[in-house]
Design a protein around this nucleic acid. Structure first.
Lengths: 339, 339
DNA sequence: TTGAAAGCGCTACCAT
DNA sequence: ATGGTAGCGCTTTCAA
């Protein structure tokens, strides 16, 4: 069931069938209908690999994520895939599972598939591997890491603004004793958030109390542990800002367990707005970063480079917004600092 | 950077390079090292499309899901992808988004990619489309729907046993007034669960009280709505079994909102054990169906058919198990039936 | 063990 | 507007 069969049935050349399929070149209406009929009759589906080989274009983008089961990713993957399908592109999805070894394998797969571009939505990416992709002229778009260059774009999430919104929200609720549970030290985006927190506090004339910045791991357990530590402090914070939602959920759970009421005794703010956040009791106030928009920018970067011939990398900024929900409330603890 | 370049650099024929790459045919050690050196030097990566065309095998499996952002799927996708990569296979992931139209497009993509098999993990699949795949000798594995046949396997989840475990758990906690929130009427797996509930109750000598089977939609909102209805009943149930976890979470949230304490006033059981369930307050007692195992069976079915030459379809059964958590407890309502 | 060469199914260029 | 045909990069006989 190949193009030659169809051509034979339709009584035309394979070139004509190809032209009908691609629609790029005008074909006589009567010829076209003959061809379409033959396609119908033979149940023909063009071989995408042969097409790739013939045209030299794979029409495929690679999408590398660290862990598709991480709540942050499914929606991103879904949006990216949808955009790709709409543009007649394929998506090659690869999971690094946070393993450098698997990461290398992922890149190899991308190379062997001759992808037209790669969206690298993970931070465990060896510069050496990037080099390999880049050397072959494959457009790349990063999430929140890496610098912009020729054929290399980046999506920056506006963490600073988001954190600012959160801190302003908390201070307007009279909170002054604000703690922060940070993410992994080696994660660039986590460091940015921590620094943004510190400078936002400074801007509001608040000093970070000793012990108010705790280590988390961007997981629920890390949040629980950090909260336990915070609750053991001689002077507890009245509000806690977390590096991501899972951390905040851990904090929330630890609060429940310790009998601390949220938001009455303590306010909690997360970051990311994963679906889960809206389902907690109370629902989590958080900073939303639209995954749909990240996917859109990533696709745009790749498509522009591969189809629009835009060689210059672009730095996109995806805004963040405050989602006010039940985990934050007016500070009920009297200020003790005036003494 | 193609195989001819490498052959030239190594001073051998392209056939030899191909043989080194595939490892299928013995090659002289010294020749091999020459070739490997040449590959290294040229930074050569074989073109997977050309390979496909030359060999006639795509080494790709299709994976069709209804919605990758649905909490049930990411883990399944991840496991499947991992298995595939381990077996040097690729995965073509397609989202139907519950749309028949997109579904048809998905199947088309599978066909054009000449996949060696398709795992159809969604129920919106037109028999006509299955026919198309089947006619081309493409192995298929379904989840919980469709019948077994030549090259068509199926994965059955042992709902009955799971539901039985849940009901036994509830009755051992003295519950007799048990309600059920069902899923979409047109979803086969949802119907199975509902029926399993009814017969399990019967087996336990319990009659289903009027109004105790409510319609849900397998979403959180459906659960909330159903719970609101149940709470409005003149005689409330003391326990509620739900067709899936999202429904149960909706029920749980509605309970919170209505000031009904879980599990003190009412017990709730879910189905699926999505990650979220363990994070709710209280954590959800539920029936777990291992997504990892589903993925493993699906891959096994496809791999066996495509590589093992097993034409006969197999019906796999994936067990379910009760995960006891905080949302169920001893019935505190005195039985009123003795009157 | 190795090489030569005929495809695999399609596209795209050159003719007509 | 259509046909003929030379590749695209690889695999896989068939010979040697």
């Amino acid at each position: 069931m190949n193009i030659r069969e169809v051509a034979k049935v339709a009584g035309v050349s394979t070139a004509t069938v190809s032209r009908v399929l691609s629609g790029s070149v005008p074909v006589d209406a009567s010829t076209e209908s003959k061809v379409r009929k033959a396609i119908e009759k033979t149940g023909y589906y063009p071989n995408s690999h042969a097409r790739m080989l013939g045209s030299g274009k794979s029409n495929t983008y690679g999408l590398i994520v660290s862990d598709i089961a991480n709540p942050f990713f499914p929606e991103l993957v879904k949006s990216f895939e949808r955009l790709a399908v709409e543009h007649n592109q394929e998506v090659l999805i690869a999971n690094t599972d946070y393993h450098p070894e698997r990461t290398e394998h992922c890149v190899r797969r991308m190379l062997e598939h001759k992808v037209d571009g790669v969206a690298i939505m993970t931070s465990e990416m060896d510069p050496h591997l990037i080099q390999i992709l880049s050397k072959r002229g494959i457009p790349i778009v990063f999430l929140d890491t890496g610098t912009v260059g020729r054929l290399i774009s980046n999506i920056s999430i506006d963490y600073e603004h988001g954190i600012d919104l959160a801190i302003n929200h908390l201070t307007s609720l009279k909170h002054r004793e604000i703690a922060f549970v940070e993410g992994p030290k080696d994660l660039k985006s986590a460091t940015i958030r921590r620094d943004a927190f510190v400078s936002s506090l400074k801007r509001n004339g608040i000093k970070v109390a000793p012990g108010f910045i705790r280590q988390g791991n961007h997981g629920i357990d890390g949040g629980q542990k950090a909260m336990t530590e915070l609750l053991a402090l001689p002077k507890r914070p009245t509000a806690i800002m977390c590096s991501n939602d899972l951390t905040a959920i851990g904090v929330l759970i630890a609060a429940h367990v310790a009998g601390v009421r949220v938001p009455h005794d303590i306010s909690i703010v997360g970051f990311d707005d994963i679906e889960l956040s809206n389902l907690m009791q109370p629902a989590l106030t958080t900073i939303r970063v639209s995954r749909t928009e990240i996917a859109a920018r990533a696709f745009e970067a790749l498509y522009g480079a591969a189809h629009g011939g835009i060689e210059k990398g672009i730095n996109y900024t995806v805004p963040s917004e405050l989602i006010e929900r039940g985990s934050t409330g007016l500070c009920t603890v009297k200020t003790e600092r005036k003494t």
